[in-house]
Computed example of a mutant assay.
Amino acid sequence: MVTEDAAVGDPLALEHQVCFALAVASRNVISLYRPLLEPMGLTHPQYLVMLALWQHSPLSVKELSRLLQLDPGTLSPLLKRLEAGGLINRGRAERDERVLEVTLTAAGRELRREAEKIPAAVFERLNMPMDELLQLHAALTRVIAITSTAS
């Protein structure tokens, strides 16, 4: 935790930067997922897409982009790889042919069973009390909300 006194000493000290702590924590947490996702044939960004689809399928590309806070140009290659892997289908929505819709295939729906083990495995690897993780999640969610409206 950065104290006010420490931040005053050198406002540019690396160890006092929120961006540095977030970047390193993000890399480290994502690396915990890698060995869990590899047997499923997923990268972490692909896993995030699948999480959104397991919760909300079908979704338009626009809705998926908004949920994941990814621009469509970043999302498109992820969707192409998931489609090539037989986990999703992309096609025009019946209600509006202008809308590109993403749906899960049977294999994509089935993969959820395997993925259900991931949260517990990550929790175990983090070895942090649940209340601390919930507080961290709440704080990060506030940071996301603040920075999303600021940009």
Rank of each mutant, 00 (worst) to 15 (best):
E15G: 13
H16I: 05
V18T: 08
C19G: 11
C19T: 14
A21I: 04
A21S: 09
A23L: 14
S26W: 13
S26Q: 14
S26K: 15
R27M: 10
I30K: 12
L32G: 01
Y33N: 00
P35G: 08
P39D: 06
M40T: 08
M40Q: 10
G41W: 15
L42W: 01
T43F: 03
T43L: 14
H44F: 15
A52N: 05
V61E: 05
V61K: 15
V61I: 13
E63Q: 14
L67I: 13
D71E: 12
P72V: 11
G73T: 12
S76H: 10
K80A: 15
E83C: 03
G86S: 06
L87G: 00
N89A: 11
N89T: 13
R90M: 11
G91D: 03
G91K: 13
R92I: 01
R95D: 11
R95I: 08
R95Y: 13
D96I: 06
R98W: 02
L100F: 02
L100Y: 07
V102G: 04
A107M: 01
G108E: 05
E110V: 10
E110D: 12
R112F: 03
R113H: 07
E114A: 14
E114H: 11
E114V: 02
K117C: 01
I118L: 12
V122W: 03
V122D: 02
